[in-house]
Write a protein that binds this DNA or RNA. Structure first.
Lengths: 197, 197
DNA sequence: TTCACTTCTTATCATAGGTCAATGCACAAC
DNA sequence: GTTGTGCATTGACCTATGATAAGAAGTGAA
């Protein structure tokens, strides 16, 4: 099983050596998800974190009227999961499905512990990654609280130009918290403005 | 320096023993902030995490028009900080000030390392707390994406009944991403509904 | 080719929530 | 007492975005 991205991630972000990586190879479990298949469905208990080796996942909730709210896209090198479900064995209120055919590495609490045994530094690195994640979420909340649909869209385009190209526009609208129609309008006015400038 | 909440936190949530706590006493630094004083101002580098021993802090951003968006309130036993600033020495884009006179414990990266030396289990516990934090942020994002002002307000009241009583209403409006006028109207309709029921 | 299906756009109308301005309270300072 | 300052409420109006419905363009299967 070749997992170039996962290996690179553990070495560059996790602080592991090539050797360390070889030692943990046996713990690695992967899972394929084809397009439109679910990795996690509302109501199920989520037992793993999913690292995306290749492909695109979406992580979303359904609100009381059944509307999908996309909380996160996950492309290569991202990790998604319902953390509450992993740590407390609660049924999840979220869904994860695949936007493209995707290969994931399944990580659980035990995996982190095993890696930490091989290289104790990993835990520290992992902590920094978690803080980083929190930071991104605060930025997102900040935009949702105080920025117009247009500003949020522009930020998305700048932050995730790659995702832009791989997911349909209506999903981006959902991620931004607006309707596809509104996003269409935002794009139209932006196009006009650029034409003038 | 008596820090009953901080001690309790490290023992209950951090997995430390009474003994462990006594060993790290010497690393503990505290800071008092009186009402309306700043703990962090936009543009400064934030070097610490702040644990609230008593009091209330608010963590907020200013949007492009200068409007405050409150990202987080922190009462007893909460930790706030601009994580990007702590880990990467970047100037912060956020502000933290005190809503009540507050006593904080100042934590930095080194603190975590020292505690982990005394009790290696701490790092693992800390990781779980971080995951929990992430979970709460996703819930918040989910509400901002898909719930009306009324629903968000009701959720706030249920989740943070204590904070309700300690911060002015216009700050709650800011936390919810609406104007004080709108919150006033939401409360009015809720009052009517309760009267009928 | 046609048909079905999805995505994106456009137009019209509806509404939640924003903006602005006035009023009413507390509470503190004097 | 008076004056001021900050907060909550209310009302009149405005606007960004939602809802609905209809078309247009792309894609893939039969």
């Amino acid at each position: 099983m070749k997992l170039p991205n996962f290996k690179k991630y553990l070495i560059e972000k996790g602080g592991l050596s090539e050797d360390d990586f070889n030692q943990i190879r046996s713990f690695i479990q992967t899972k394929n998800v084809s397009q439109n298949q679910f990795l996690l469905s509302q109501g199920a208990v989520c037992s793993h974190f999913f690292f995306v080796e290749y492909g695109v996942l979406r992580f979303y909730a359904l609100n009381s009227e059944g509307k999908e709210n996309i909380l996160q896209f996950a492309t290569e090198n991202w990790i998604v999961s319902d953390r509450g479900s992993v740590f407390y064995q609660e049924p999840s209120t979220y869904n994860i499905d695949a936007i493209e055919d995707t290969l994931t590495v399944m990580l659980d609490e035990n995996f982190v512990n095993e890696v930490a045994k091989v290289n104790p530094n990993f835990r520290k690195q992992n902590e920094i990654l978690l803080h980083n994640h929190i930071r991104h979420l605060y930025k997102r909340i900040s935009l949702l609280l105080g920025a117009s649909a247009k500003v949020r869209y522009l930020d998305f385009v700048n932050t995730y130009p790659d995702i832009m190209l791989r997911v349909p526009q209506w999903m981006i609208a959902s991620y931004l918290g607006i309707t596809p129609e509104s996003l269409s309008r935002v794009r139209k006015t932006l196009a006009k403005e650029n034409f003038k400038a």
